[in-house]
Design a protein around this nucleic acid. Structure first.
Lengths: 232, 232
DNA sequence: CAGGCATAAAGTGCATGCACTTGCCTTGCC
DNA sequence: GGCAAGGCAAGTGCATGCACTTTATGCCTG
């Protein structure tokens, strides 16, 4: 039956994982929201089997929570756990920045500085959208510049899990200029190979975002109805 | 058909994940070894469905590698990636130790020091097995002492992935006494609340294990010859 | 009319079946 | 004898079906 197979990219399960993860990370699916296997299967026109596999993987990644026999929900992140993730992020970024200062190649350094300087223009223009895009790229450069595949993974994963909570920073006025200044401190430290300074600057940079987000998250009605303390 | 169900703990998939992960982490299943869905299903007396889900989750965790349509193998870790994981481990331990120095409660500090002092006896006796058991506990205390759930997760996960490569340290003579000395530096720093010193000591501690393991791993031709049919 | 208890509905967990892919091995061809 | 094409067996990928668990509904009882 059925005209399955529209595209031929990766397996069905992989696509499901990406699709669902994307909806969670972008905030389209909200914490605590129920993930019904049947509905998801219908939604993507596949059977429940790949959906189940995808949910299992997402659960392994911590993006969804699975209660045996009681279905899956988008992972509910407590205030406390969120704080721990932001703090981890700050530490991970600090490590990446420190290693970057010590290990980036000449090309990587030049490229980093070039892009950073170019981004000043986005700040002047107040191009929030574009700056955010650049910002992601900037941080990715630090992760890669650390020349450590595992740290890179940990950092990228943690960052993606924090993504839903990072939109907050847009809300603060003058954020762009401030962000750029902080980047500038990091870049300067990296350029002169000062790992300790680069690490500290990166940690501070993330911490500030963290504080902004904490405010945002607190105001967010994430605990409206369910999310009872599901025994533990 | 069939008399399924031997035990009744958790879901079948979870049991499979634990069972397979355990065999990988303990080195019973070696990197590169083929994981045949049918054989695993037969081995554990379940159908292929839960096996597939388990493999999917293990793949998400990085313990196995899945090639579409070509089956799964125990993840092969390159020398380079292994090094990056050890380095990450050193950094993560450093963070945990630093936070522990700053945040452990009085009870946690006392308990840590007490156990540490008690372990001196194991060193004297040369009780390798028991010391290794204590050692795991010691590090777990640091992870918990950091009071950061996410760092805890990252650290525990990374540590388990390194487990197959850590047996190396047993091979070095005088390792126990050296390890205890290093622990002692960490404990002392934590007791006086010196985060920076605790972090540095923890990083050094792991780095030394790392070097030992690197030698071991290099000497070990991690290919698949011997590990043919292990099923029984 | 409230509080159980039975029963139905919904939804999960796993087994089975079939289509497809891959790798090997044969077979025919040069 | 080597090599390419084709076929076969092994094994993966997904759909479907059924048993079981949870949750919703209604009915009976006090």
């Amino acid at each position: 039956m059925s005209g399955r197979r529209l595209v031929r990219s990766g397996t069905t399960v992989d696509q499901m994982v990406r699709a669902i993860a994307d909806r969670i990370v972008t905030g389209y699916l909200r914490p605590g929201e129920k993930l019904d296997e049947g509905s998801l299967a219908a939604r993507f026109d596949v059977s429940r089997t790949p959906v189940r596999e995808a949910l299992g993987q997402l659960s392994a990644m911590g993006l969804v929570e699975r209660r045996p026999n009681r279905g899956a929900i988008v992972a509910v992140i407590t205030q406390e756990h969120l704080a721990s993730m932001f703090e981890s992020m700050a530490e991970l970024e600090a490590i990446c920045a420190r290693f970057s200062a010590e290990r980036m190649t000449g090309a990587e350094r030049r490229s980093l500085e070039l892009e950073h300087q170019a981004s000043a223009r986005l700040v002047q223009l107040g191009a929030e959208e574009d700056y955010e895009y650049f910002n992601t790229d900037f941080h990715s450069r630090l992760y890669r510049g650390a020349h450590n595949a595992h740290i890179h993974d940990l950092t990228v994963t943690t960052r993606s899990r924090l993504a839903p909570f990072r939109r907050a920073q847009f809300m603060l006025p003058g954020r762009l200029a401030k962000s750029w200044q902080e980047h500038d401190v990091i870049v300067t430290a990296i350029m002169r190979g000062d790992g300790a300074a680069a690490g500290k600057a990166a940690r501070d940079h993330v911490s500030i975002v963290s504080e902004a987000s904490a405010v945002f998250a607190a105001a967010d009605p994430m605990e409206s109805r369910l999310s009872r303390s599901v025994r533990r």
